[in-house]
Design a protein around this nucleic acid. Structure first.
Lengths: 198, 198
DNA sequence: AATTAATATACGAATTTTGTAATTATATAT
DNA sequence: ATATATAATTACAAAATTCGTATATTAATT
């Protein structure tokens, strides 16, 4: 197998993943068909089945990819050489973007059909990612970046619940700009978390 | 049949319509099942088939409703007793809202399968609505509200293409607020359309 | 020219969706 | 309270869709 072919193969794989991810994100797993993914990707169904045994396997791969990307970005921020307040700000902005998280539509099917294979896969992988994040936060505590006597679990839940705050119009109205609200969040985190003034 | 029953019947009809409309708008006709509509509406499938012979008939009813609402709002603005510049502003805002128009997702299925019954229905109804709007604009021209030597068709197409302008970030960046961009649009229309300075 | 890889088409099997019928539950009117 | 009308639930056959693969054709690579 030549180098060119390898590249074109991985490119087709990527195109399929990206196309499917877009569709799954918008409409959820159930509503999207293999044929539709292939048509939009401009790739034949036969080629699809070269890379994925079925739609479920593909969804798992996508879910995995998203989780891994999210963890990577999180770890990058945590280990980067910037002051704690900057880290908090970047983490908050990452959360507010929302592009790293799994979409509501994508999750919807699992809630209704919780004994499906995908549902189990999703909860397992979510738990794994959760543990990694917890470990990272604890490490940050050890290094003195965050206050030691705060539960990492609390920080995790807190971060995950920032989005609804940010999209609350009444709250946003209190600030002259969205950026100002972000700074408020950052400061709130810092005063509660930082062991020293920044 | 008592009054109370009549009310509750029409209420169920409305709930079904509203629920289905929301789902169709987001995912399109094809992706949404009758059972799903019923579940979300909290109404049994049997009752669904009391009101609609099938999903297609329901989609037609919804499409009709949206078109009629849109026309009504448009006519209300045109015949209201406010200065032309205010009319233009209200019409532009109506277009920018987008809640009156048919969603991209809802239309998507028709483009791919243009010889379906729904596709024909949609294009027929659209043409009808188009003619009504044209007639209204011509009437406004007759009354001297708009300049006489402008093609109503042009105004129609122009209005329908405002939305992408409004959602263009680079364009929005040129203005200190979205409202300012709206006023720019209004002024642009007025200088080209109004027979007299406002 | 031979070989490899991808597309297009077709298709039976599996699954989902549809629309209806029969039964049970609930609310309303008498 | 009982009869009556209306809706929800369950079950189901028929229709439609989706799946996954086999085969023939086309395009690209060696």
């Amino acid at each position: 197998m030549s180098k060119v072919t390898e590249i074109s193969i991985s490119r087709k794989y990527e195109v399929l993943m990206k196309t499917a991810r877009g569709l799954f994100w918008k409409h959820g797993f159930r509503r999207v068909t293999v044929e539709e993914i292939c048509q939009r990707a401009g790739i034949s169904k036969m080629t699809f089945y070269k890379y994925f045994s079925d739609k479920l396997e593909m969804a798992k791969a996508i879910f995995d990819q998203v989780i891994q990307e999210g963890l990577l970005k999180f770890k990058e921020i945590l280990t980067s050489d910037i002051p704690p307040s900057e880290k908090i700000k970047k983490i908050i902005l990452l959360k507010l973007e929302g592009t790293n998280d799994i979409s509501k539509e994508f999750m919807e099917d699992f809630y209704t059909d919780s004994d499906s294979e995908l549902a189990r896969f999703v909860s397992t992988k979510t738990l794994e990612a959760w543990n990694v994040v917890m470990a990272d936060i604890r490490l940050a505590q050890e290094k003195g970046i965050f206050r030691k006597d705060i539960k990492p679990e609390f920080m995790f839940y807190f971060l995950n619940n920032l989005k609804p705050l940010y999209t609350d119009e009444n709250l946003l109205k209190l600030y002259s700009s969205p950026q100002e609200l972000v700074m408020e969040m950052v400061n709130f985190c810092m005063y509660g978390i930082s062991p020293v003034k920044d």
